[in-house]
Design a protein around this nucleic acid. Structure first.
Lengths: 113, 113
DNA sequence: ATGACACGTAGGAAATTTCCTACGTATAGT
DNA sequence: ACTATACGTAGGAAATTTCCTACGTGTCAT
């Protein structure tokens, strides 16, 4: 059952860039934004920034709606579900690891002053 | 509080490649494996595959232990916790989206034959 | 010691990504 | 109509990634 977006791993590729991850966080925290408003957070020529938006768009992570002469970008969080789904089967393994660590810390607390 | 691994976004960059995501899934499902055993799943020269392992290693996603003339690679799932942490603040947004979709489907079920 | 096996490293070609400076298009305001 | 604003596209340089073919190192088996 396809979640909605592009079935391949474009989402993972899109998340590889710190800039693009930050854009998603901005859209999450402040709602839909124009390109100029978003670009203001990054030291980068605007066309370069537009390219990042294109990658996010093609991954289904954002959508654009035109409003007058500006385009509002909106977070499409559903596309992130692909990542969560991929991550899920790993959860029990890092949980083991973390609880092992906690046990170790508890042991140290008890044995050493 | 650093989780353990490399603080920057190397984990995200490592996950950008389908090959590397598959390696992690293999290690998760079948336990620690030698390089040759892992490489058998991919149509790629072995040195190329070694490079992928290096990226995973430097991201803290796998560890290697030498055993005789082979090296066993092991999943270090704790490094994936960085991804889960990044993902968490987005969860409520895709949940909204998915439940909106469910509401819509329910509505259609009720109204249309 | 000698040969086979399991790997990594070196060096490089080809593709991709990331960034830039023009330049083009569409809308808004005068 | 004319200008300014908001963006994208074109084309290209530089860096990075991805893959290759040698080749080197350490380990095991004889």
């Amino acid at each position: 059952m396809p979640t909605t977006g592009t079935q391949d791993g474009k989402v993972f590729a899109a998340l590889a860039s710190p800039v693009r991850r930050e854009v998603l966080a901005l859209l999450r925290d402040t709602g839909p934004q124009s390109v100029t408003a978003l670009a203001a957070h990054f030291a980068m020529a605007r066309p370069s920034f537009s390219e990042h938006l294109r990658v996010l768009r093609e991954a289904g992570l954002v959508s654009e709606t035109r409003s007058g002469r500006q385009r509002l970008y909106r977070l499409e969080a559903a596309a992130l579900y692909e990542v969560q789904e991929w991550l899920n089967p790993f959860e029990r393994y890092w949980r083991e690891k973390l609880s092992n660590l906690r046990d170790l810390l508890d042991t140290l607390e008890d044995d050493e002053p």
